[in-house]
Computed example of a mutant assay.
Amino acid sequence: MGPVRYRILGTTQAFRADGTALPVGGARLRTLLTVLALRPGRGVPVSVLVEEVWGAAPPAEAQGALQALVTRLRRALGPGAIVSVDGGYRLAADAADVDLFRFDRLAADGTRALAEGDPATALDLLDESLALWQGRALADLPDRETE
C-alpha cells in the first residue's frame, strides 16, 4: 500500500501514497489519530491517549473504549499503521509523513535559503510549506492544552 500521509494542519485526514483519502470518520477517531500523529514513530501511553480523547470525562471502561477506537483506526488506515507497544500505541510513520513536521522542515529550509542569499529557492520552499495548511492546526483536538 505504501506510506500513508497525515494532515493535522486543519481537519485530520489520512491519504494513501496515490492521494486516495482514507476514511477517518468520527470526532474521537480523528482526535486519536491527531494525538498519535503528533508523535510519529513514538509510543504514546494509554493514559495520555485516554486523556486527550475524552478529557476529564473518560468512559467507565476507558481502556476498552480506547481499544475499540484503535481497532476502527487500524481498519481505516490499513494493517501495520497502528502498532501496539508496551503500555500504549504507536503510529507507524515518520515525521516526513505528517504535514506539521514537513511544514517545519520546509519553513526552516526556506528561511535558511533566504539567509544564504537565494530568494528564489526560499520562495519556493516557503510557498510549499504554506500550501500544507488546510485550516486551523490540530482542529480535531478538543479545546484543551496540547503539546
Rank of each mutant, 00 (worst) to 15 (best):
R5H: 15
T71K: 12
T121L: 15
R74S: 15
D94W: 15
A57M: 09
S129A: 15
R30W: 12
R28H: 15
L123S: 15
E61W: 07
R28L: 13
L9Y: 03
D18C: 00
D86T: 09
A14V: 02
P3D: 15
Q13R: 12
Q134L: 08
T111P: 07
A76V: 01
G10E: 05
L125I: 04
T11S: 13
V83R: 09
P23Y: 09
A62L: 02
R136G: 11
I8Q: 03
T12N: 07
R144K: 11
G80S: 08
P3T: 13
L36D: 07
T71C: 06
Y6T: 00
Y89H: 14
V24W: 06
L49V: 02
V70Y: 07
A17V: 06
R28M: 11
T11L: 13
G88Y: 01
I82N: 01
P23W: 07
P23K: 05
R39E: 15
L66N: 01
A37E: 05
A115D: 13
E61L: 13
W54L: 01
E145G: 10
A96K: 11
A113G: 07
L9A: 04
R28K: 15
G135A: 01
R105H: 14
L130E: 14
G87W: 02
L33Y: 06
D118N: 12
M1Y: 13
P142V: 02
A108E: 14
L22Q: 05
G80M: 10
A17R: 09
G64P: 02
A56G: 10
L106G: 04
L69A: 00
A93C: 04
A115F: 12
L125G: 03
T146E: 14
R30K: 12
V35C: 09
R39S: 14
T12F: 09
T34S: 07
Q13S: 13
